[in-house]
Design a protein around this nucleic acid. Structure first.
Lengths: 130, 130
DNA sequence: CGGTATCCGCTATGATACTG
DNA sequence: CAGTATCATAGCGGATACCG
């Protein structure tokens, strides 16, 4: 990975860059949490809804559809009554999930440092205002 | 405008989990691109604005303030006329930037697979509708 | 159970104008 | 140059109701 590659063909810098969209799908508010949950094991719809705190049916369905369409999630709808649908990660989705999960863990590990930084920032601002 | 936010107890699954917020800061639309740019070298405000395609002054300022407050970015305002302000990564910010940059590169590398998956998904839907 | 359809408020984002 | 202030708007996300 060479950062200098960004210099001339800065695709990521174009507003319509397609990778930006995929990135936003996997790093979206619910995308991160869904991927993280499915890293454990497969989940049914309502299980997933309980597992991921605070997500509405609509947003869960939407997130799952987006990630399924991108090839990150496999949807297995069983033709039984009552309906049963299992969601799991595809190999591609597992890679994605591991990346965002690593990032999540890193963030959690640096939370203390972030809080310190915020306190320093806010403190400096407060002092300046007086 | 107050950059500060409310803090709350841990657990990624809770909607008010603070790490979720930090994660959203670094993976935000402009956060990703700003961090990636600063991975190269320090930038001035307007340089950064040109470097990151399509960002408004307002959003760039807001993104920089948020990331500065979290301790990811260092702001160096020189008391000269005309004003000159340099932005660079802190050690913590460099770690963050490397993570999101890795994720970005991974996404770019899987774009073809994602497009294939989308074509298959859309094709199946189309066939089903007929 | 596992969704879809509809309405709607809120916030993130953006365009423009202005300031130190 | 490096922002801030103001206003306008699109679309994210939630609540609710309904369907197979």
């Amino acid at each position: 990975m060479d950062v200098r590659e960004l210099d001339s063909p800065p695709d990521v810098n174009r507003a319509d860059c397609p990778s930006r969209l995929v990135l936003e799908h996997v790093t979206s508010r619910w995308g991160v949490l869904v991927l993280a949950a499915l890293l454990e094991h497969a989940y049914r719809f309502s299980e997933l809804r309980r597992r991921v705190g605070g997500v509405s049916e609509k947003m869960l369905a939407q997130t799952l559809q987006t990630l399924e369409r991108d090839g990150f999630i496999h949807r297995d709808a069983k033709p039984v009554i009552p309906p049963r649908v299992d969601y799991s990660l595809t190999p591609l989705g597992r890679e994605a999930a591991e990346q965002v999960w690593a990032l999540t863990r890193w963030v959690e590990g640096t939370l203390d440092a972030v809080f310190d930084a915020r306190a320093a920032y806010d403190g400096a601002r407060e002092a300046q205002r007086v």
